[in-house]
């Protein structure tokens, strides 16, 4: 039995009385990209937010189950959600750089926000921007406002900002859905480079993207007002070319969703 870096066990989520996710069991091996796919409203974005305890910021959110990072439950009583989010970074659908900060300040903003001080902040800026493959584009304008960048650059800056925290896991919630094909391709290349050093979970609506970048794929579905659940989970090749469940087959072949 392989050791999974991050593991969701019987994850259930409620918003108020509404049960939106039921008994999700997924394992995320180290140095692999796992794609979460499924039609809108199936709970995949909600699920990815449970992996770094972001969903609990929504008023009325409820949770049951366990999320284990290196075998330890991130919902444990002694665990501070702030520490969880430092170890498990997140990139959102819409690029959200901090508008009042420069490019450089954005990269190290996580340190300031979480109160971590690092003497090598200058190196960290370069290192993080290199890892997000945008150092050459911005090295001469580090003090420019972050919002002077294009949408694709802003999203890569947000990736760099997460990388500066040196996370073990990077969660990406449709990171390319607001971007043009060129920017999307560059981010996909970045993801493939990053997986060498971390575990990546990505929500995507783009079937081609899931096939291009992920090692494993989980298909989520919420049928007829029932809570979302995982229909099928396995190697990406298998999910797309030999799905076991007929619903997966219909979805990956574009018959609904």
């Amino acid at each position: 039995m392989a050791n999974f870096h991050l593991e969701a066990k019987d994850v259930n989520v409620w918003f108020g009385a509404r049960h939106v996710l039921k008994n999700v069991n997924l394992q995320f091996p180290e140095n692999q990209v796992t794609a979460l796919i499924g039609p809108s409203g199936c709970g995949k974005s909600t699920f990815i937010r449970t992996l770094n305890r972001m969903h609990e910021l929504i008023p009325g959110a409820g949770f049951a189950g366990e999320v284990l990072l290196d075998g330890k439950d991130i919902y444990g009583e002694a665990v501070d959600p702030v520490d969880v989010r430092i170890k498990i970074g997140m990139v959102f659908q819409k690029p959200n750089p901090f508008p009042t900060m420069s490019i450089k300040e954005n990269v190290i903003s996580g340190l300031k926000l979480s109160g971590i001080s690092r003497p090598d902040a200058g190196d960290l800026v370069e290192q993080s921007l290199v890892r997000a493959s945008m150092w050459n584009e911005v090295k001469d304008r580090l003090n420019d406002p972050a919002i002077s960048l294009s949408g694709g650059q802003q999203q890569r800056l947000c990736i760099a900002r997460s990388l500066a925290m040196d996370p073990d896991v990077l969660l990406m919630d449709e990171p390319c859905s607001a971007l043009d094909p060129g920017s999307t391709r560059r981010i996909e290349e970045t993801i493939l480079e990053l997986k060498e050093s971390m575990t990546i979970v990505i929500v995507t609506h783009n079937m081609q993207q899931a096939q291009r970048i992920s090692d494993r794929t989980a298909f989520f579905l919420a049928e007829d007002n029932t809570p979302g659940h995982v229909v099928e989970f396995g190697e990406t090749q298998q999910i797309f070319y030999g799905p076991i469940d007929p619903r997966t087959n219909e979805y990956v072949n574009g018959r609904f969703g």
């Binding site: 702030v82 520490d83 430092i86 970074g89 959200n96 901090f98 903003s109 926000l113 979480s114």
Partner: peptide, 25 residues
């Protein structure tokens, strides 16, 4: 709200998010 979410996801606390993101903005 996306900016606030981003700040919290980076390990911001309520206080640091107010001081470093919400107030400057």
């Amino acid at each position: 709200k996306e900016i606030i979410k981003g700040a919290l996801a980076l390990g911001g606390t309520r206080e640091s998010v107010l001081r470093r993101v919400i107030l400057p903005t």
